[in-house]
Amino acid sequence: MMTNLFSTFDPSTNIMNLSINWMSTLLGIMIIPMSFWLIPSRMMIIWINVINTLHKEFKTLLGEFNHKGSTFIFISLFSFILFNNFLGLFPYIYTSSSHMSMTLSLALPMWLSFMMFGWINHTQHMFAHLVPQGTPPMLMPFMVCIETISNIIRPGTLAVRLAANMIAGHLLLTLLGNTGPLMGYLMINVLIITQLLLLTLEFAVSIIQSYVFAILSTLYSSEVI
């Protein structure tokens, strides 16, 4: 029989002699992410600065009509491609960004969404883009055909550019590495130095290609607004 109205709140339930009633006060602290407890590392500070720089650049490219948060789509795209490109630099890891099935699946849905948004909401603006300003009347039909074709092949060029640049360096590294067993000690040293230089180049290419992909996607999106 309950002798006190507040006896239901007594810490009676326990696990390993620790009262669950008092443990509940720590639950809020336990779910706070670890990054809020720690001083940001240098790598985290660098990455935050990179994201801020990309945000400002994408915001400038999108112009005054950009929607709030629209730059984060392209920042996420840059981060995803950069992560996959870097993973491909490690031995025995499959480079997904060097295959058309991967790059086209990134470029095609994004281009389709831009086109659908543009033609549904800004139809007149999209028609105006087909004829550049100052085009002679005689050339207008040809310019419409050329602009239409160049617009259609955009996802293909995005996909091929990323895949070709990523696979070219990896292919060269593999071909040079396979010649190693046939070389003497002196040439092996030359080969190792060459491979290290090529690996440094591939490191730079990984950053540049992810940046180019994101920048071109931003430029294509800015044309439909």
Rank of each mutant, 00 (worst) to 15 (best):
I39W: 08
S24N: 06
L158H: 12
M34H: 13
H55Y: 01
S150W: 13
M116N: 14
I93H: 11
I208N: 08
I32P: 00
M44S: 15
V205N: 14
F203T: 10
P109A: 01
V131I: 15
P132D: 01
I45L: 13
H55T: 14
S96V: 07
T60A: 13
V205F: 11
Y92W: 07
M44D: 15
I153W: 01
G88M: 05
L5E: 11
S98I: 07
L112C: 04
P155V: 00
K68Y: 15
P109T: 01
H55W: 05
M143C: 02
M166E: 14
P155F: 04
W111H: 08
V160A: 11
N14C: 09
L197H: 06
Y220M: 00
F114S: 02
A163W: 02
L5C: 12
F36C: 02
M100C: 05
K68L: 14
P11L: 13
L162P: 05
M110T: 06
S217L: 05
A164R: 13
A159E: 05
Q195P: 05
L158T: 01
H122K: 14
I39D: 11
N85P: 03
E223Y: 03
F90R: 05
T103W: 05
P155E: 02
P33T: 03
L175S: 03
E147V: 03
P155L: 03
L186F: 07
M126S: 09
N151H: 15
I149E: 11
F213I: 01
N66Y: 15
F9G: 13
F9L: 15
T8Q: 14
S24Q: 12
A214S: 10
I215W: 09
F78H: 09
Q209G: 04
I120S: 12
I93T: 07
S12H: 12
T95P: 12
K59S: 12
T123M: 12
K56W: 13
K59C: 09
L162V: 05
T103C: 07
Y92Q: 12
I153D: 00
Y94D: 00
S79K: 05
L26W: 07
I75P: 01
R154F: 13
M43R: 08
E57I: 15
F127H: 13
L186A: 08
L219H: 02
G69M: 09
P141N: 02
N84A: 09
I51K: 12
L18D: 06
I48C: 14
L162W: 02
I146M: 14
I48Y: 09
F72P: 01
S210C: 04
G118I: 04
F80G: 06
W37D: 03
F114I: 00
A168V: 04
I39P: 12
I153Y: 04
G118L: 01
L139P: 02
T148K: 09
G69F: 11
W22P: 05
M126D: 09
L158E: 06
F213T: 03
F213D: 08
M187S: 11
